[in-house]
Design a protein around this nucleic acid. Structure first.
Lengths: 242, 242
DNA sequence: CGGCGTTTTGAGGCGCATCAACCTGAGTGG
DNA sequence: CCACTCAGGTTGATGCGCCTCAAAACGCCG
């Protein structure tokens, strides 16, 4: 976790390029950049521990960061994979609460941290920003519930199928579509509440059933209806058991 | 789900008594009451299905309501138990999205629904309300993550122990404390990601270990440190396995 | 006291985690 | 250009824990 010293003007430009701040006022960004600083983290190095009270808003500039809940057996349940341009920590800041998750890098990453007081000051009384942030947090909440839906399912195969269905890009090519896993398989597995072994087994099963085709980190879904069929068939099987 | 016809003035008074609207302006409440209506739901009757696009903000006046994710085997994973004075549906309204959970009554309940357009109109451009709502949603998000932490734990006993630890009231009596389960055991179990059988077994185990004492729906925790000890011991056991 | 909803207790099977070994591909240095 | 290394992924064998199913016990209200 090496902190880099970067001039505020450059920081402001970097901030303005983050998707997180799309549509934000330039003046606001300048002021945010004043109390901001950038640092780098090596792969799998910790950034924040669960229970820390954050004093910054965090933005992932490059690399990838995971928010995770530490489990009793030493493993992690990944709550969110944060991609470049995205941020984390607002919710805890808004409540003045401690982080409900730990933070670590999935790979070598660059992160900017923005002073909390500055951030909160800009927010308070600014309807546009408040509305923007409200929607942001609402989206995060919805996403978390979607994750919960997946990893509450009783069958591990079903979890993988549902995950793949959710990964469909908006634009679907006529002969199916291709997705790139948003991270290492171990991290995806941890997000689905599975071990990487089970995840791997389910993927190869789907492969030999002809539902998907794996080629490295990319997965081809030749026909989306096969996935839906598989989904329905698993649900039917689970229902008759109960 | 019988809708009752109640005069707006009375509705306004009822709204103002809900904890949800604590601190809200009287004028705002009057306007919200205009497009509001009240209805009653019988125990275990559905209110909304997962995927519905809600057109109202919902407030539980009496009874208890559960927000749940339907599982493939016909069971439910309860996301939240909504008590009188609390509400639900804001997040989906704010995003114009469909509900990520189904809604049903845990017992005979009275619910008020407030017209979405009215609600959103009041909110937009009102910094105080926006800030209030932002914090509300942030709290909900934190609560969801806390639930996720519990029900991601690998041991069912640990989940129950963690749940009990989270139930501690702020004021702790010197000779321990007593908690009342916030709902039926089956519902609590569904919130912890357990079957009611497993939940029952874990509770009786904790009982015969002297960690807790059950008397109907109430649970005495003679000594909180015993719970923490049990927690630590389970974690140690899980760690050594891995 | 009788009825129902809820919880408890018991027996059994299966799925996933666990552990361990092997495979693959990318990066490195001689 | 190949030998080596290491991280990430795959595959196989085993055991335990929780879900499932079934039935009895409890608590509550009429």
């Amino acid at each position: 976790m090496n902190s880099l010293s970067i001039p505020p003007a450059h920081l402001r430009d970097t901030l303005s390029r983050q998707a997180y701040f799309r549509g934000w006022d330039a003046g606001v960004l300048s002021r945010l950049a004043m109390g901001a600083s950038q640092f780098s983290v090596g792969k799998d190095m910790p950034v924040l521990a669960r229970g820390d009270v954050p004093e910054h808003l965090y933005l992932v500039v490059s690399g990838q960061v995971r928010l995770f809940i530490p489990l009793a057996n030493g493993m992690e349940r990944i709550v969110s994979l944060v991609m470049p341009g995205e941020g984390f920590g607002e919710v805890a800041l808004l409540l003045g609460a401690s982080l409900p998750y730990g933070v670590a890098a999935c790979r070598d990453s660059h992160i900017i941290m923005v002073n909390a007081r500055t951030y909160l000051a800009e927010l308070s009384g600014a309807p546009a920003l408040l509305e923007h942030t409200l929607r942001l947090v609402a989206r995060q909440h919805q996403a978390t519930l979607l994750d919960m839906e997946i990893c509450s399912q009783p069958s591990s195969l079903l979890r993988v199928v549902r995950f793949l269905m959710n990964q469909r890009p908006c634009a679907e090519v006529d002969d199916g579509y291709e997705i790139t896993l948003p991270g290492r398989k171990r991290d995806i597995a941890a997000k689905l509440g599975l071990t990487q072994e089970t995840f791997s087994r389910m993927l190869s099963f789907l492969g030999q059933q002809g539902v998907i085709a794996m080629q490295g980190g990319a997965i081809r879904i030749g026909d989306g209806s096969k996935l839906r069929l598989m989904d329905a068939s698993i649900c039917a099987k689970e229902m008759q058991r109960a």
